[in-house]
Nucleic acid binder design. Structure first.
Length: 291
DNA sequence: CACTTGACCTGTCCGC
DNA sequence: TGCGGACAGGTCAAGT
């Protein structure tokens, strides 16, 4: 669910809402795995610290603090970071919100600021996590060292994707672009949408794809993600932004969650398969295998 | 090393 | 209605 456009949407919201605020208290709510830092660490490096910046790398959020530590957050599948101002709605629109009063039964941690506003970390399935790390150590964690290029940066080109795919020639293109060490930020929704955009069947073996198609795929990934970003990301079931609002990109999706419907391009039937262990949506007419 | 599969959780939906 | 099972999908560990 939260893929790059969703995490970036949360980042932008948090940057607007929490930079400059000072942490008054923080607690994990019966969820040591969601927020594993000790009470002593929280006291020393979080309480009293001011939020200086909110960054993102791949699907990971980095909330930089004046203490020299950062809150590193991965929302995984059902994580939400929702800010509530002192008016209790954080400036968002209750009618668009998936969530009501906070904390709720999925709230795993709460960070309260000195002005009594608060940031809630909700996560139904508890796959997500949030932890304090020295800011200087963040680039040293395994994930950061291995993760691939950011697809929305100008430096991400067809040639870059072509090079990154060289060591994944013997797998399907879907598995390859979901691999965060190939490129950062693609998840199930944008994998299906960008493969549809270039008429590539998700099961196509990477090694058989012409270079020109890889180049098109790189631009398709960019445009699909930019489009999603401009609509606040995709809300399938859980995802909300930093104010609790849903994203509306799925209105524009061509194949994702559209099984049984006609392909917007050729009228063929959209079917759902399993590729790389994931539910995969494909037009059986214009995304034929082995073109 | 490249590649695949299962585990991690907890909810919803579907068939009987 | 209740109940079991499949499914959801990001990452990592363990397997081939």
């Amino acid at each position: 669910m939260p893929e790059l456009p969703e995490v970036e949407t949360v980042r932008r919201g948090l940057a607007r809402l929490i930079i400059g605020r000072e942490v008054a208290a923080a607690q994990s709510i019966e969820s040591p795995r969601s927020f594993p830092n000790s009470a002593a660490d929280v006291e020393q490096f979080l309480v009293g610290a001011q939020v200086q910046a909110v960054r993102r790398r791949a699907k990971v959020l980095l909330i930089e603090l004046s203490s020299g530590y950062s809150l590193v957050v991965h929302l995984k599948m059902t994580g939400q970071l929702v800010y509530r101002g002192t008016d209790n709605w954080g400036g968002g629109h209750p009618s668009d919100s998936l969530i009501g009063e906070l904390p709720d039964r999925f709230t795993r941690a709460v960070i309260t600021f000195t002005d009594n506003s608060a940031l809630y970390f909700n996560d139904m399935r508890r796959f997500g996590w949030m932890r304090l790390l020295p800011t200087l150590e963040v680039p040293e964690i395994d994930f950061m060292k291995k993760v691939g290029p950011e697809p929305l940066e100008e430096s991400f080109t067809g040639e870059v994707l072509f090079e990154r795919l060289k060591r994944r020639k013997n797998t399907t293109i879907k598995a390859a672009i979901l691999d965060q060490t190939v490129l950062a930020g693609v998840g199930n929704i944008y994998a299906d949408e960008s493969l549809w955009a270039v008429k590539l069947h998700p099961s196509t073996m990477v090694g058989t794809i012409p270079k020109a198609i890889i180049y098109s795929l790189a631009s398709a990934i960019k445009s699909v993600m930019f489009l999603s970003l401009s609509h606040g990301g995709s809300t399938d079931k859980n995802y909300v932004d930093a104010e609790g609002n849903k994203g509306s990109y799925l209105v524009f999706a061509n194949v994702f969650r559209r099984e049984g419907l006609p392909c917007p391009r050729c009228g063929g039937k959209i079917v759902k398969l399993r590729v790389a262990g994931r539910g995969t949506h494909v037009c059986e007419q214009c995304q034929e295998l082995n073109r």
